[in-house]
Design a protein around this nucleic acid. Structure first.
Lengths: 113, 113
DNA sequence: GGAAAGTATGTCTGATTTGACATATAGTAG
DNA sequence: CTACTATATGTCAAATCAGACATACTTTCC
């Protein structure tokens, strides 16, 4: 749960899945980052598909352009809550969210448990 | 995104899906609450299936028993991030999370988009 | 080049979330 | 009843996150 690891990693601009073991980074921590990035991408897709600018989306969210930019950039200062509620406001259904979460399985080990 | 609505609702101890329109509660807000509750249930299931007490889980999470209790109770002070990273620590895969999220569709309209 | 729209980044301040602690409430065994 | 284990609830200081603002970077168009 160490948030600073995330900072180091993401702000270094690396493709996170690639470096699972670079820092102490446990599997759970790596997964969490990937999930967030998956939601980020999903958010940008949805916004663009609707032909909205970041400013317009920010208005719907009662937030600001800079925060939308950070959301889409996978900035560590953005929480999953914010990403998910934003997606919901953009009309995503829980099923859509589920799909987005699964859309980022890198190693995709079978036998999920 | 008004957090206080969530408080009122959840602390009143109601089955959230039932009251979508009780307060101003937009669809997105209602969905978010239901998603969190779905994750809460999922967390308790996983913990119990592993035969762990809240205290034991708290240790693995480097957190405290009271926080685990709140997580499982769907307390409004618990974020999605915490729920999800806890599930990950318990060994849930992204696919498991996806399943949990879909597991709470109340009206389950077909044709999800 | 300059203007404009869209996006990115850094940084404040206030709000929310967190772990911890105390304490309360079940349930069970002696 | 007492002791013990598991879970729940309230509170608080410290950590994290949010919206806002300034500002920089890109394109595109003139």
């Amino acid at each position: 749960m160490n948030r600073t690891k995330r900072h180091k990693l993401e702000s270094a601009g690396w493709a996170v899945g690639t470096v699972q073991e670079f820092l102490g980074l446990t599997a759970a921590e790596a997964s969490l980052i990937e999930l967030k990035l998956a939601l980020s991408r999903s958010l940008r897709n949805r916004r663009q598909k609707k032909g909205l600018s970041q400013v317009e989306l920010a208005q719907r969210l009662e937030s600001s352009q800079s925060r939308v930019a950070k959301m889409e950039a996978g900035d560590p200062s953005v929480s999953m809550d914010l990403l998910i509620s934003s997606l919901l406001v953009l009309g995503a259904t829980p099923a859509d969210l589920a799909k987005a979460l699964r859309g980022n399985q890198k190693g995709s080990r079978r036998r999920a448990a």
